[in-house]
Design a protein around this nucleic acid. Structure first.
Lengths: 228, 228
DNA sequence: CCTATGCTTCGGCTAACGTCGAAGTATGAA
DNA sequence: TTCATACTTCGACGTTAGCCGAAGCATAGG
């Protein structure tokens, strides 16, 4: 009979609960590591690794190596569209809709990206530092003289950070904002400093939330390039 | 994490080759019987019945009883759209596109619908008979006096047909044309007559093809209401 | 009534695949 | 180098689910 492309293999790929969870976790366009996806899918790392290999070799996912992590994202917006369509069908088949928890908006706002700040706040911070000349070059960021002084005043041991093999500054793509945020040794040290100053509190999982004082101080830092 | 409706169960439904074949066979909007779908899927009737039950209870298919047949069709155009989307993904995953065989167009043109003529030709015949007053009432068709004479001249034993319990005329929905064609005892007898006169030759499966003479005679019948 | 046909249900067999423990590779940090 | 972390590969176990034979309804027609 008349048959188009075989949809069965693709659909079977999407039909496994673990893989479906992985894909839905990536639907907002972010890139996540294998470990994160394993947790999202509720399976062990080995199992997730197998799934990710299948999804990648079917061109549903693209992988990108960054350090010792592998970041996965949907290979194309089309994939997300089909997933959307399937969700539409799922509703009418009686599949339960799980209410989007309150954690997700929080996650987009401020979260840990391995060891530095990501999300809206992470992007704001990065762009604020650039704007006030504390770092320069958005693509290959580096510390300026002004920035050096500022961060040392802020309590960071810049010299010891520079002796590490790890690059001081690095741009990390923020997948919820599709823009850059600050990674590298400086990014990690800044996050630590934020936590020590109790500007930030670590929530469940990767979520971090600003304390009221932290919120105020962060605003000041971003807008004026200074800490009050 | 943030999860929408669970796509896994639906995708798993589409992920079985037999079910995928069933669904793709229905993608053009036609309604097919369980047996036809079993053949299309390449499985036995029992197996297909199980699949159809699942697809129906998931609201991907709607069933309609007609005599001792059950006609299945996609419950909604949305379903076809999602299938289309999956085909798109399937192409890039490297799934092979099977060229549309030559049988399908033939099938749309002229085929057996149980025991009478269906497809484009079936619809043409039905509408020709109506137009020339050989039958009347497209919804609940009945033989006219003119028609009675015509068909008896044509070689049909109308009187014995009328003694049967089976209704003489019946309208049957043609799913490739979405219009009516002639069923009932008269429809069956007409098909028999066409075959006996060698206007029609039975091909593989449900396909029937007109012979050159048959084509000409059929044209004349439809356009003028007479046989030359 | 009877037979034929279309379809469904039941039961058991089988194959496929997701799962995880354990071991192996690669990268980063000290 | 040494240790830790991130990830992959291998192997085996276990569940799932598709599949078909056989038997059971339901409808059509004689």
């Amino acid at each position: 009979m008349n048959e188009g492309p075989k949809i069965a293999s693709v659909a079977a790929l999407l039909g496994d609960p673990a893989r479906a969870n992985i894909l839905t976790a990536l639907m907002d366009g972010r890139a996540l590591t294998a470990s994160e996806l394993a947790e999202a899918a509720g399976v062990t790392l080995q199992t997730a690794s197998g799934h990710l290999a299948k999804l990648e070799s079917s061109n549903l996912l693209k992988a990108e190596k960054q350090g010792r992590h592998r970041y996965f994202r949907l290979s194309d917006p089309d994939v997300a569209e089909v997933l959307e369509g399937l969700m539409g069908l799922a509703q009418r088949t009686g599949a339960v809709r799980v209410r989007s928890g309150p954690r997700d908006p929080q996650l987009r706002q401020a979260r840990l990206c391995y060891d530095h700040l990501a999300g809206e706040r992470g992007v704001e911070l990065f762009e604020g530092l650039l704007r006030h000349g504390l770092i320069h070059d958005a693509e290959r960021p580096a510390l300026t003289e002004d920035g050096r002084g500022f961060f040392m005043d802020f309590g960071l041991e810049i010299e010891s950070l520079e002796r590490k093999r790890r690059p001081l500054c690095r741009r990390c793509l923020d997948w919820s904002e599709r823009r850059g945020h600050l990674a590298g040794a400086l990014g990690a040290a800044l996050l630590q400093q934020f936590l020590e100053r109790r500007w930030l509190r670590q929530g469940t999982g990767r979520v971090v939330t600003f304390t009221p004082e932290g919120e105020q101080a962060f605003r000041s830092l971003v807008s004026s390039g200074r800490v009050s």
